[in-house]
Amino acid sequence: MTRTKLAADDMLAVEGFSASFDLKGELRPVLKDVTFSLPSHSMSAIVGESGSGKSLTALSVLGLAPRRLVRTSGQIRYRDSVLTELSERELRTVRGARIAMVFQDARAALNPVFTVGHQLEATVRAHQKVSRKQAKSLAADALASVRIPDVSRRMEQYPHQFSGGMAQRVALAQTLLCDPELLLLDEPTTGLDVTIQADVMDLITTLGAERHMTTCLITHDLGLVGQYCDRVIVMKAGEVCEQTDAKTVFSTPTHPYTQLLLDASELKQRDTTERRIIA
């Protein structure tokens, strides 16, 4: 097992983490010796295609991976504690409050039968002993902090009245209520339009800086990495291929798969002039 020293400025370190799916007693490895660290106060990205294990890795950090995922070796360390050794009860004090996660489909994460304001207030009151009035004003502050216009009207609305981009902001607001220091974002803008994606990503970057959060973007889009992230971890088929600076990944990628991803992301443009001559 590879064991890296948790540097003083690392928020999270995944060390030789291997896990398998338990398929009726047979183990199929899905994460193989995954090792990386997330430096404090930076925005990292875990990049990979479907089946690369990027989401499973993130879920494992929070202890939210599917039950049939079996850890076979390695550990996940967060500050002074080893997350993989914590009990479910201990983990609950970390989850949400210290490490939070935002998912791709924000609207599915909200309860359709309660107003958005109600749900945010409930989150406040679950974590802090405050009066209803205080909870309401904290919830409103949170919505304002994610730049949702017309907060008082929005508080009274139901999730279906929010667009995908607005729902993602609500999800962000909900995680911010507990003031986490590590925020994992699993494809937070996949499915959003590009103009909205840019707004949401800008917001995430700003909030990360304002609140001194360490953020980790789980994505398939290298374009987002170049635009917003400092560090990048490239995963393929359950393994980490490359871990480097976001800048380096574009200038001098070392792993062939990283190169392949870069090449595939950059499509050649149709030569319309040539075609016109043919025509």
């Binding site: 338990d22 494992s60 993989t84």
Partner: peptide, 12 residues
């Protein structure tokens, strides 16, 4: 594989 630890994300 009795050495294997199993649970949510292999944590428990």
């Amino acid at each position: 594989t009795n050495a294997v630890q199993r649970g949510r994300g292999g944590i428990r």
